[in-house]
């Protein structure tokens, strides 16, 4: 086996080992050097309110609450995170289903909680 081929095999093996969880619709990985998307949660909106991901591409979502505890829930991508008040939660995902999805805050945060959502587009 050539040195180049050995490198490819080793890299692929490392990548496979780094996959910690396989779930329908989303593949979560413990991976370094993946694109990071910062999302801020603040009563009663996420900012940005729309992001676009690529099917099969791993990204890290860095979720930060600027006030109270919020949730980050999207059933098709198996996302169900808590964002504690004033803290940051990170989740790494690899969407495997294309579509336009509404992500909601599912931790009751006040009067307009029901309208706190954002759009995730998977192309």
């Amino acid at each position: 086996m050539s040195r180049t081929k050995s490198f490819i095999v080793a890299t692929a093996t490392t990548l496979c080992l780094s996959v910690s969880l396989l779930v329908s619709g989303t593949r979560r990985v413990h991976a370094e050097n993946v694109p990071v998307i910062d999302i801020t949660a603040k009563r009663f909106a996420f900012s940005p309110d729309k992001i676009t991901l690529k099917k099969g591409q791993t990204v890290k979502l860095r979720l930060h609450s600027e006030d109270v505890t919020h949730g980050f829930f999207l059933r098709p991508l198996k996302l169900d995170e808590e964002i504690p008040a004033g803290q940051t939660t990170e989740v790494t995902v690899t969407p495997e289903t294309a579509g336009t999805f509404t992500t909601i805050c599912d931790h009751f945060c006040g009067a307009n909680h029901g309208n706190m959502n954002m759009t995730i587009v998977v192309e």
Partner: peptide, 12 residues
């Protein structure tokens, strides 16, 4: 039951 999860019409 999951009536409309993206409208928070469900119980986990």
């Amino acid at each position: 039951f999951d009536l409309r999860p993206d409208w928070e019409w469900f119980t986990s």
